[in-house]
């Protein structure tokens, strides 16, 4: 039985048994593998990193080489139960359009992204006057793949504007663990958010 990263563990609990998922930026396919082995979930992962694609093949998960920025028009409406995207929303060209696509293809979606409103990030910018860097955000401003950072509030406002309903949300620290202190003030103390959303 494989050990699952903590945020993936939160996600897997929200995926219905015997359903079908699409994992955007599926990495080495660990979530898909876990879902197949433990919940009889079928699905596909999209990935563009060659080494990760090879790892998916070795893990026996369905992986399709496809760039999320080129769109998802090859997937038909309502063809998937749950569309999942972990830690990639902030790195795509148009997160807003991709969210639309996720909820066109899937009945529901699960999204995780780093919180730019995390207190350390806020203080980094405030005190150092430089673009924040941390273990979760280890890049310089000029080479970061994270081109569309947002805070939890930003994301929730976008969902409201789009008529997307937030079914569930969990906020975790940089080790993807839940902690009671985070629950006190999630938008300040949480580093990574996991949102479960739908149009229904």
């Amino acid at each position: 039985m494989s050990e699952l990263r903590e945020d993936l563990n939160i996600i897997q609990q929200w995926v219905k048994p015997d359903s079908q998922v699409l994992d955007l930026g599926c990495g080495e396919g660990m979530l898909l593998k876990y879902l197949r082995e433990h919940k009889n979930v079928r699905g596909y992962g999209l990935e563009i990193n060659p080494d990760k694609i090879t790892a998916c093949l070795a893990n026996g998960v369905n992986v399709i080489e496809q760039d999320l920025n080129a769109g998802l028009s090859n997937f038909t409406d309502n063809s998937i139960d749950t569309v999942i995207m972990t830690q990639a929303l902030q790195a795509v060209d148009r997160p807003d359009l991709l969210l639309d696509e996720m909820l066109r293809i899937g009945d529901e979606a699960i999204v995780t992204f780093p919180n730019f409103g995390y207190w350390r990030t806020r203080f980094y910018l405030l005190l150092k006057g430089r673009m924040p860097m941390s273990e979760t955000l280890p890049y310089n401003w000029y080479d970061t793949p994270n081109i569309h950072m947002c805070t939890f509030r930003d994301f929730e406002i976008l969902c409201r504007e789009k008529g997307i309903r937030i079914v569930n949300k969990t906020v975790v620290d940089d080790e993807h663990k839940e902690h009671w202190t985070i629950r006190l003030w999630p938008s300040m103390l949480g580093e990574i958010a996991v949102y479960h959303i739908t149009r229904k």
């Binding site: 079928r42 596909y44 694609i53 093949l57 369905n62 992986v63 399709i64 080489e65 496809q66 090859n74």
Partner: peptide
């Protein structure tokens, strides 16, 4: 090749694809 892949996905088949 992607025509084949997309048709297989729509037919709900197990498929992997590398370009």
């Amino acid at each position: 090749s992607e025509e084949i892949v997309n048709a297989l996905v729509q037919a709900d088949k197990n498929v992997s694809y590398a370009c």
